[in-house]
Amino acid sequence: MTDSASHPSDDEASPHARRSLGDTLRWSFEFDQSSTLAGATFLTREIIPSARDPFDALIESGPTLHQLEELKNAYKLLRTSGSSAPERSLAARLYAATIATALVRHGAVISSQASATLARAFEELAADASMPERLRDIGALAADALRRAG
């Protein structure tokens, strides 16, 4: 397909075309003004469309192990490619929270990092007052699980 085939066509007068133009303009404006959570929310909803935001995805939506692996990959990349330091910091926390959720909900370790590194990340998650309480609980449970596993 050529690039021109992906551009707005010359038939912009149709209601569908005008709606598409309006949608593109609207989300562009919203992206331009977006908050720290917006990037992680966008990624989460690309992977779990029914989730409201990352917290909803991890706490409420009952994600499958495969979805958690996809979320982990996405948050891991956002840790380095986020548009601001707060966004990158949030992504790092969500990265740990996703691994913790997989461990607590599915009994699976979806990271190749050393146990000590994971335990530290889970403890930091559990201690982070900016995170929802139920996600902090998951962090604490995951840290416990790692300790028990020795």
Binding site: I47, A74, L77
Partner: peptide, 12 residues
């Protein structure tokens, strides 16, 4: 899929 989503976020 996660890597695609991140690239899409960057592009958008």
């Amino acid at each position: 899929k996660g890597a695609c989503a991140v690239r899409l976020l960057i592009a958008k």
